[in-house]
Design a protein around this nucleic acid. Structure first.
Lengths: 230, 230
DNA sequence: TTAATTTTGTGTTGTTTTTACACAAATTAA
DNA sequence: TTAATTTGTGTAAAAACAACACAAAATTAA
C-alpha cells in the first residue's frame, strides 16, 4: 500500500450579484489556528463522498445555501505548504447564486458567513485570495461564451439588469441597443407580459426570462452563445 | 487530525500529432491487478511534491519524455470506486508534445509506452478513456482560442502542416486561402527564407515559425487569438 | 522531352456581422 | 407643467467573413 500522508479538501468560490456589485461568499472560522479569519467555505471530504457532494454539503453546513450553478475550477496542490499543519490539496469549485434567494446563516464550523464585495476583498486565510482571483477570471470569460449570467439574476429580470450585470462584471461599457439586439437574436430570452417599475423613477420595463429549455435545444443544433461587443 | 484515507495521483493525457493523425500516449502497466493493461502515464504523488512536478516526473520515468505544453485539466474524484483497491483521486493534466523529439522508452513502472491513434483508442484501465475524452474536447476548443497547435509541430513548419493540423484535429474542412490570411494577419507567424520540398512531389514551400515573443507581447495589448472559419 | 500530377501561393467580390449613434415614450420628482 | 430618469427602438457605414480559381514550381509517368 502506498504511503502517502496528504489530506483532501474542497473549497467553493460562490459569487452573488446585486445592483451592480459582485460579491463573493466567505465564512469566519470558528476553530483552529485561523479562528476568526475569513476563508472560503469548504472543508475536508469524507472517505466515501464524491467531491461535488462534499462541496454541496459544506455550503449547506457553513452558510445554508444551495447554488444555481456549480463547476469544478481547479485543484490547488502545487504549494506544498498551503496549510501549515499538514499537506492539504484542495479542489476548488466555482458557484453562482442569487443572494436574494436565502439568508446566510453560519452553522456547524463557521462562526459567521458574509458577502464581500469582490473589489474590496480582505485578505483571506490560506491561498484563498488566489482562488478567488482565478474564479473571477473564469467568471469573466465564461460570461462571454455561456449564458451563466442568468444564474445570478432573478427568474424574471429587466433587460437593464442583464445589461448592468455584464457591464459591471466585465468592467466595460456596453451599447444598450446592440446588446439587446444580440441577446434577443439568440432566442433564448423570452419577453413576459409583465411590466414593472423598479427604481425610483423612469419608464417601467418589461420583464424577461431565460429559456433554458430552448437553450439546451439550440446546443444540440450546434448553437454557440457568444457575446463580445464594443 | 482529520481521519481520511484517500490517495492522490496524477495522470497525464499527452497528445502528439504526426501527418494528419492525433496520438495519445499510453503505457502498459507492469505490476498489480491491471498488469499488461494500457493506461495513461501517471502515478501517486510524493508527500512533499507539487502536483505538476509529479506529472513531469512520471512522464520522465514512464515514457522518457518532456512536454511542450502542460496544464491542469480536471480532478477526477466523484466516482469513489475509480480504483477498486482503495479510493484514489486523480488530478489529470493535459500535455502537448512533438513525437519526433524523442523515442519513447518505458522505464520504472511501465512495461511499454506507445502512441495510440486517438480515433482508435483501446479500452484503457480505470476511467482513463473518460479523461482522454475530456482532454480531447479541451484540445479542440483550445485550438480555436490559443495558439497551442504550434506545440504539436516542428519549430519550423510548412503552412500546409499547420492547416492540416487544424483540419484533422477539428475534423472539418478549411479554406486554405482564408486560413492563411487570418493566421498571417495576427503577425505571430514568421516566414523564414528556407524553402523545402517534403512530400514526394509538388512545389516546395516556405518554412514558417511561431513567434512566441511577439505573441506574448500582443497578449499584453489585449490581443485575442481566435480562429473559427468556414 | 513532353505531358500529367501534385503541391504552394495568391486577390476579389458579395454577404454577413459589427459598430456607432439619437430621439421618442412612460413614468416620477420637483 | 417642467425637469429628470429610464425604457424602447432603426439605420447606415465599416469591418469581417465566405466563397471561389488559376498560375507557378516541382516530381512522375509516358
Amino acid at each position: 500500500m502506498i504511503d502517502q500522508n496528504i489530506k483532501i479538501a474542497v473549497d467553493a468560490i460562490v459569487f452573488g450579484y446585486e445592483k451592480g456589485t459582485l460579491y463573493v461568499l466567505a465564512v469566519q472560522q470558528r476553530f483552529g489556528k485561523l479562528a476568526d479569519r475569513w476563508v472560503l467555505p469548504g472543508g475536508f471530504i469524507l472517505d466515501d463522498e464524491p467531491l461535488i457532494t462534499a462541496v454541496e454539503r459544506e455550503l449547506k453546513e457553513e452558510a445554508g445555501i444551495t447554488v444555481n450553478y456549480l463547476e469544478q475550477l481547479a485543484t490547488f496542490g502545487d504549494n506544498v505548504k498551503r496549510d501549515e499543519r499538514f499537506r492539504v490539496i484542495s479542489v476548488a469549485y466555482f458557484a453562482l447564486v442569487n443572494p436574494k434567494n436565502f439568508v446566510l446563516k453560519a452553522d456547524t464550523d463557521a462562526k459567521d458567513a458574509k458577502w464581500f464585495d469582490v473589489a474590496q476583498l480582505p485578505v483571506l486565510g490560506y491561498d484563498h485570495n488566489e482562488m478567488v482571483k482565478l474564479a473571477h477570471q473564469r467568471l469573466k470569460s465564461k460570461l462571454t461564451y455561456q449564458p451563466i449570467g442568468f444564474d445570478l439574476l432573478d427568474h424574471e429580470f429587466l433587460f437593464s439588469d442583464l445589461e448592468n450585470l455584464y457591464c459591471s462584471i466585465l468592467e466595460r461599457d456596453i451599447d444598450r441597443r446592440n446588446f439587446r439586439k444580440k441577446i434577443l437574436s439568440f432566442g433564448i430570452v423570452t419577453e413576459t407580459d409583465k411590466v414593472v417599475k423598479i427604481g425610483a423613477s423612469g419608464r417601467p420595463g418589461k420583464l424577461f426570462t431565460f429559456d433554458k429549455l430552448k437553450y439546451n435545444q439550440l446546443l444540440k443544433e450546434n448553437f454557440q452563445f457568444d457575446i463580445r461587443f464594443a
